[in-house]
Amino acid sequence: MSRFLEVEDLKVSFTTEDGVVQAVDGVSFGVDKGETIAIVGESGSGKSVTSASIMGLHNRRTTKISGSIRLGDDEIVGSPDSRLRELRGKRMAMIFQDPLSSLHPFFTIGKQLVEALQVHNDLNKSDARTKTVEMLDKVGIPNAAKRAGEYPHQLSGGMRQRVMIAMALMNDPDLIIADEPTTALDVTVQALIIDLLKTLQREFGTAIVLITHDLGVVAETADTVAVMYGGRVVERGTVRDIFYRPQMPYTWGLLSSLPRLDDLRTARLDPIPGSPPSLINLPVGCVFRPRCQYHQFVDGGLCDTARPPLDEVAKGHSIRCHLSANERERLGTERLNVTTVTSPLKEGA
């Protein structure tokens, strides 16, 4: 079974003054058209490096990349720049976190959008212009024809993010990578942007890779989720698997760290002790071992010596963990019962 985007055993490392940074270490996931996969993780988990690799945006001189990224019939890893340039914008596009620094301050937004269109299409100026205004209109920018003549600084943050989305959609790509698209925005604006992305996805059947640290946004938008930690995918499954049947101690920790709007304040948060690992000199065994409070339930110190493989525990639900199924069941219920994500866990598996 091959999905539209298939990332397999992706490894990315950089050489720095301090040593080799293994930013991404054996990441696999996939997404089909019309679907959204969320890649969740904290800073330094490798989620943004993964997305940059899909776009082929890594620095070729300093970055070592192996594995496979297939987009339809194209293999991204090892493709020449000329081919990548054809793919970027046309078949895959990216929405960045900060729209102000991703738009050129000297050119009107109309000019920047027209350029994005003319790179890939043989269109004359007035046709390109018409299409640009149409697209701005589609992403909900009022008075689009006039707005196209304005500069990025004249627009609010939400409007700029809409321009970024318009630019990403300009050539009707099959894949959109959205790297923290709403992190810089207020919640009321975030709600509008997410709403817009979902509507456009329905209309165009785009595959979306959503990179985020906000589990609320994930619950709202994703079909499948990959949780990353220390450059590896530690748990992968449907959105319901991750929120209602999480099997990996790091995911438990993430869920129980979150204060929730629908909880009383009396419940104390249950954080993960310690801080994320440095990607230089990662531990030999499980990357999460130094912060995991359950390693004593695994026999023979396996967590210190062996890297857990990504095992499928149910259909479409995989984890990296040495805990036995029984222990996971017992500990997971215990952990999530005393904190926030209580009831849903007991729901039918």
């Binding site: 709403d195 709202e220 849903p344």
Partner: peptide, 27 residues
Amino acid sequence: TALLSAVPTPDPDVEKRRARILLQGDL
């Protein structure tokens, strides 16, 4: 009311059920 309705909850079922009040326009 609108502000609270805009905050996504880390719970897919709750998210599916709920209606958002979308505020139009800018500050």
